[in-house]
Design a protein around this nucleic acid. Sequence first.
DNA 1: CGCCTCGATGTCAGTCGCTGTCATCCCTAC
DNA 2: GTAGGGATGACAGCGACTGACATCGAGGCG
Lengths: 197, 197
Amino acid sequence: MARWEPGTAERLQRAALELFTTRGFERTTATEIAESVGLTERTFFRHYSDKREVLFHGQDELVRTFLAGVDEAPPDASPIEVVAAALGSASSVFTDERRPHSRTRQAVIDENPALQERERHKLASIATAVTGALRARGVDELAATLAAETGVTVFAIAFTRWIREDEQRSLADIAADVLHELLTLTAAAQDSGRLPR
Amino acid sequence: MARWEPGTAERLQRAALELFTTRGFERTTATEIAESVGLTERTFFRHYSDKREVLFHGQDELVRTFLAGVDEAPPDASPIEVVAAALGSASSVFTDERRPHSRTRQAVIDENPALQERERHKLASIATAVTGALRARGVDELAATLAAETGVTVFAIAFTRWIREDEQRSLADIAADVLHELLTLTAAAQDSGRLPR
DNA sequence: CGCCTCGATGTCAGTCGCTGTCATCCCTAC
DNA sequence: GTAGGGATGACAGCGACTGACATCGAGGCG
């Protein structure tokens, strides 16, 4: 038997989400979160580098899922195809059971600009990771950056739609649709021949 | 004759960039910035809502330039074509004379994660504005979001290339190239027929 | 000319996020 | 049983940011 309850970080995370939901992010202090699970503020900051970070626990796992998807793509796949594979892999993490939790969490984020900022930052770090993975496959820098960044954009848009109350499809399906829509849009521009250069 | 020197916000901005460059962002306090131009910390925060914001003064102008570009696009332009127009318009703001300043400013941002976060947030707000402008033109939500977000991605990538020491072309030229590369990438994926769905 | 309002700044106290440091204490290994 | 180590507590302190109130010169108005 340990001196303290195990899973400290997880308990803090649950307590934080609960408090953020009821009182709002800004009107909840780190001390309140910590004491609501019988710990001190200092301990909170030992587990999370800052107050916002408590809502983004497990982000590493998402990054790894993206990278796993990249690895699974066939060697001759084009950058966008690789990104599509990563999208499929990442989407599979978000099962139907996770939707309610994702929803409440997202509601908190949508209420606070500082949290949105952090969310964008996390998405950007995913893009950076995917860019690196593409580069490791021999894709040149421009193509790698574009494909990765585009993939993350598609993921973010698909995720927003997946969260919606009326949406019943899987995230993977939605992401595939969004990607398809992007290809349609770019193809239309390509064909018009009215772009500069 | 005014009671105080005019252009307080601009003086603060210049002083901040100077101090950030020499001492670094985190090791510069808001009080130091303010006092270096004969003001108090309180006044600093009256002009800038937070310490990071001082580096993003004039962002509104950039947003307006994007939107002006959207307005200039012909009525029958496709979403990507509209975005290309916005890209051209926004790029024209960054003349050759502004490059040295952009470089030192970017160097500061690249050194600090909190500033990168804010930068991403600003880019996201541009995307949101462009999305709104596209929607006002009758573009449906998905296409508008995708086109706007993609456009901002292209802009960001082009901008980092424009900043590079060895790069001599105009930002508009680079942006057009980057957009072209994106169209090439998506076309390749489209043609392969190997995407899910 | 004198008064009054207004806007930008100063002053001050206070909260909160976050950090460094040191002490505490159970659990484990030897 | 003793020595370490890992997680926590206690405490002091800095800096970002805010609210409330005071100050004071500029310009309008009688």
